[in-house]
Design a protein around this nucleic acid. Structure first.
Length: 120
DNA sequence: GCACTGACGCGGG
DNA sequence: TCCCGCGCCAGTG
């Protein structure tokens, strides 16, 4: 049986290039809707692997709340812009437009994730 | 076991 | 719509 953080790694790697997902969304896909905080913890401690695209994870408002945990504060912003995602300053946080860049889960995504989870 | 913490989310005012 | 308070729960000491 896979633990929460292993699933988290798979879910994060499923976020499409140029899109972003929220902590809650990831927690939901891992089967633990209320563990959004653990998603942040997992990414911070690299519990989901060193190669996960952590920069594509933002909070429910589209803010780059994890930016301070990167090598330098604007790294997350830069990585997103590299992928064509618009990042703007709202007065307190760097933010992305979830309407435009939010990951809309498709049935194919859900099916793929389900298969991945069951490989263990 | 207890208290506290926090890359979060939500509902009420 | 913005803000604030509270709920959440794995980790940590």
């Amino acid at each position: 049986m896979m633990n929460f953080y292993e699933k988290m790694g798979i879910v994060c790697n499923a976020i499409p290039y140029g899109k972003v997902a929220t902590y809650g969304q990831i927690a939901l896909l891992c089967g633990k809707p209320k563990n959004s905080r653990q998603v942040g913890y997992g990414l911070r401690e690299n519990l989901a692997g060193d190669d996960v695209p952590a920069h594509r994870v933002v909070n429910s408002k589209g803010e780059l709340s994890g930016a301070v945990h990167f090598e330098f504060p604007t790294l997350q912003k830069m990585l997103l812009q590299e992928e064509g995602v618009e990042v703007s300053w709202n007065g307190t946080h760097w933010t992305v437009d979830l309407k435009k860049y939010g990951w809309k889960n498709t049935m194919e995504d859900a099916y793929l994730l389900k298969e991945k989870f069951e490989e263990f």
